[in-house]
């Protein structure tokens, strides 16, 4: 027997507070990876479809849960209540509640199919091609038409369609920038595609969405959408040779230490080193972040990262370096100079 009516109040109360939570989420606040704050054609289309389906779901939820609550409130056993009629079923009702969901599903299925084909990943003519290659646990970006290679921060021109072609150098990863595009997996031996276009300049956050080992949580990325002229300036800088340090400067010392160090076994700096295991560092100083968009690109983070990367990013393939004191300062200064 249910004695205490307070039990019944708990459910609506909980639901109301949950809805309040929901409203806070959709309203203000800063949510850099929110799917509700779409800023590209692809993500907007998904958002619109989701809102459509969500509206149906809320309608069904309200009706069915209301029926359930009415049933248990109205038909509570009462002392001396009549014996219930042994109803075994009702054919018309069965047909009705088979057809009703079927009909609702048609309203969901049709826009779903349309969106599937709209978002199949093929950009219109004249799109900028970008190759994304997943690595444990960072992103390599290549612009085959511009002859640029960079890492973790993807620069794109606003207003231009982007054709992303992706694959993986090791395990499966998933490329996800919620405000711009739905996710897509990067799989070794396969090429997957997405296409999107954003008209708003700004920095968009993303991260790997397929479990890919120890530092899956630390495989983050940024997409930086820029106006044409700013993007062009970035391209020009990337295509230029790396900065040559001034004679006798601390950066030049750093360059010499870099040449002698283990760094060159894995990294590229055009003209200095040419290995492909880790990210291309030719213009690392111009990036806002390091280590898979994990830390701001500051002197302090670079110090800590070079000294002991695996302690900051579990499983990171870059071993702790023995560089210390003035040597480390010089290498950091050199890397920062590579704008």
């Amino acid at each position: 027997m249910l004695r205490d009516p307070v039990y019944f109040d708990a459910v609506p109360l909980a639901l109301v507070s949950l809805v309040l939570l929901l409203l806070t989420a959709c309203g203000g606040g800063h949510y850099p990876q929110s799917v509700f704050h779409a800023e590209a054609d692809f993500s907007r289309e998904l958002d619109g479809l989701f809102r459509n389906i969500f509206a149906w779901a809320v309608g069904v939820f309200v009706v069915v849960e209301a029926l359930l609550l009415v049933a248990i409130a109205r038909f509570r056993a009462r002392p001396g209540g009549p014996e219930p009629k042994p109803v075994h079923g009702h054919t018309a009702l069965e047909i009705g509640w088979t057809l009703a969901p079927a009909l609702i599903l048609v309203f969901i299925a049709v826009p779903t199919m349309r969106t599937i084909f709209d978002t199949a990943g093929h950009a219109p003519e004249g799109a900028l091609r970008v190759e994304v290659i997943g690595h444990q646990w960072w992103w390599e970006y290549r612009y085959p038409t511009l002859d640029i290679s960079t890492a973790n921060e993807l620069h794109i021109p606003a207003g231009m369609p982007i054709q992303v072609e992706m694959t993986s150098a090791d395990v499966i990863h998933s490329f996800w920038i919620p405000r711009l595009a739905g996710k897509r997996d990067l799989i070794q031996g396969r090429t997957n595609r997405i296409a999107f276009r954003t008209d708003s300049t700004g920095e968009y956050w993303g991260q790997c969405a397929e479990f890919c080992g120890a530092s899956h949580a630390n495989m983050r990325l940024r997409v930086i959408a820029q106006s044409d002229s700013v993007f062009q300036r970035w391209v020009d800088r990337q295509r230029a040779a790396p900065v040559t340090p001034a004679k006798g400067s601390v950066e030049e010392t750093g360059q010499q230490i870099f040449r002698r160090s283990a760094c060159i076994g894995c990294h590229t700096i055009t003209g200095i080193a040419n290995a492909k295991v880790g990210p291309d560092l030719s213009h690392v100083g111009g990036r806002g972040t390091i280590a898979g968009a994990l830390f701001p690109n500051t002197t302090e983070s670079l110090h800590r990262w070079i000294s002991n990367a695996p302690s900051l990013k579990p499983g990171a393939l870059m071993p702790p370096q023995s560089l210390q004191g003035a040597d480390l300062d010089a290498v950091v200064a050199y890397l920062q100079s590579l704008k």
Binding site: L46, D47, E65, R184
Partner: peptide, 24 residues
């Protein structure tokens, strides 16, 4: 009551495109 919620959120990712924002 709870299975209804799980079933309905299931419909939102039965739709392949919206699932691209939800999966994983």
């Amino acid at each position: 009551a709870m299975f209804i919620i799980g079933g309905l959120s299931g419909v939102t990712h039965a739709s392949a495109p919206t699932d691209l924002q939800q999966t994983d």
